[in-house]
C-alpha cells in the first residue's frame, strides 16, 4: 500500500514538472524568460561570465569551509613564502595565507558591490520614474538635485565622506552609493518620459488607476530592462571603486581581507613578493570583468529588436 502511495506521489510530481517545463518551453507562458535565457546562453562570453560569477558566489558563501588557514592569525616565521602546495597563493607580510584571505575577500567585495548598486538603484530608479511621470515642478526639483550630485566625481565625494565618517568598508560603501544614484535617476527618467506618452498609459488612466498605481504597475516594470543592464555593469565598477578606496587606505582597514587593501599591502614588496599584490588584483579584475560581460550580454538579450533574429 505504502509503495503505491509513493509511486503515485512521484508520478504526480513528474507530471507537474512536465507542465512547468512546458511553461518554459518555446511556446509556454514564460517564453519571454526562456527567450532571454536562450539568447544569453548562446553567447560564449556571457556563458563564461555566468559560470565565473556562480563560482565566485559559491566561494563567498562557503568561504569558511574553503579557506585553508585562519585569516587573522599572524605567523611571522612564515612571512613572504612564495606560492606552493601548502599555500597556493603564498603568504603575506604577517605570514597569513593569501589564498584564504582572498577567498574571504570575495565576501567583502561582493557585498560591497551589491550593496552599493542596490542602494543606488533603490534611490535612483523610483526617483527617476516619479520625475519623468509627474513632470513640472517635481521634475525640475528632482533633476536639479540630481545634476548637483552628478557634478561630483564619485571618488571625490567618497573621499570626503570617508574623511568625515572615518575610513571603513561600510562608510566607503555609503559614500559611493550617495554619488551613484543620480545615474539611475537620469536613466529611469528618460525612459519614463518616452513611456508616458504611450497609449496604454492613457488607457490605464481612463480605467481609473491612480498615478501611483500606474507608476508602480506599468512604468516601473517597463523601465526595468535598461536599469538591470546598467546595474549589472555597475556592479563591476562598484567593486573597482570599493577596492580602490581600500587601496588608498580609506575603505576597509587592516586586518580585514579586502582585495584592494591587500594589493596596497603588497606594494612595498612588489619586486620580491609579487604574489601578495598580484592575486588579489587578479580576483578584482576577474570579478569586474565577469559583471561587465554579463551586463553586455544582458543588454543584447533584453533588447527587443535584437533577439528576434536567430543567430547565423
Amino acid at each position: 500500500m505504502r509503495v503505491d502511495k509513493l509511486a503515485l506521489l512521484s508520478a504526480a510530481r513528474s507530471v507537474k514538472l512536465k507542465f512547468l517545463l512546458k511553461d518554459f518551453g518555446r511556446e509556454g507562458r514564460f517564453r519571454e524568460i526562456r527567450l532571454i535565457v536562450d539568447t544569453l546562453m548562446k553567447n560564449p562570453l556571457t556563458l563564461a561570465s555566468i559560470i565565473i560569477l556562480g563560482v565566485l558566489i559559491f566561494i563567498a558563501i562557503l568561504a569558511p569551509w574553503i579557506a585553508l588557514y585562519p585569516i587573522y592569525e599572524s605567523n611571522i616565521e612564515k612571512k613572504y613564502k612564495p606560492p606552493s602546495l601548502e599555500h597556493p597563493f603564498g603568504t603575506d607580510h604577517l605570514g597569513r595565507d593569501i589564498f584564504s584571505r582572498v577567498v574571504f575577500g570575495a565576501r567583502s567585495s561582493l557585498i560591497a558591490g551589491i550593496t552599493i548598486v542596490a542602494i543606488s538603484v533603490a534611490i535612483g530608479w523610483p526617483l527617476g520614474v516619479v520625475a519623468g511621470y509627474r513632470g513640472g515642478k517635481i521634475d525640475t526639483l528632482i533633476m536639479r538635485i540630481t545634476d548637483m550630485f552628478l557634478a561630483f566625481p564619485s571618488l571625490v565625494l567618497a573621499l570626503i565622506i570617508a574623511f568625515i565618517l572615518g575610513p571603513s568598508l561600510i562608510n566607503s560603501m555609503i559614500a559611493v552609493s550617495v554619488t551613484w544614484w543620480p545615474w539611475y535617476t537620469r536613466l529611469a527618467r528618460a525612459d519614463t518620459v518616452s513611456l508616458r506618452e504611450r497609449a496604454f498609459i492613457e488607457a490605464s488612466k481612463a480605467m481609473g488607476l491612480t498615478d501611483f498605481q500606474i507608476m508602480l504597475r506599468h512604468i516601473l516594470p517597463n523601465t526595468a530592462a535598461p536599469i538591470i543592464v546598467q546595474a549589472t555593469m555597475d556592479l563591476g565598477t562598484a567593486i573597482l571603486l570599493a577596492s580602490g578606496l581600500g587601496f588608498l587606505g580609506l575603505g576597509a582597514q587592516p586586518p580585514e581581507p579586502e582585495w584592494g587593501l591587500m594589493v596596497s599591502e603588497g606594494r612595498p614588496v612588489i619586486l620580491s613578493a609579487w604574489w601578495v599584490s598580484v592575486f588579489p588584483g587578479l580576483f578584482i579584475f576577474t570579478t569586474a570583468a565577469a559583471f561587465n560581460l554579463l551586463g553586455d550580454g544582458l543588454r543584447e538579450a533584453l533588447d527587443p529588436r535584437v533577439r528576434r533574429v536567430r543567430g547565423a
Binding site: G244, S264, S277
Partner: peptide, 13 residues
Amino acid sequence: VLTLSTPSFWMGL
C-alpha cells in the same frame, strides 16, 4: 570589457 574591468591601481603596479 577588459579595460573597463582592470583596477587602475593594479594595472599601474
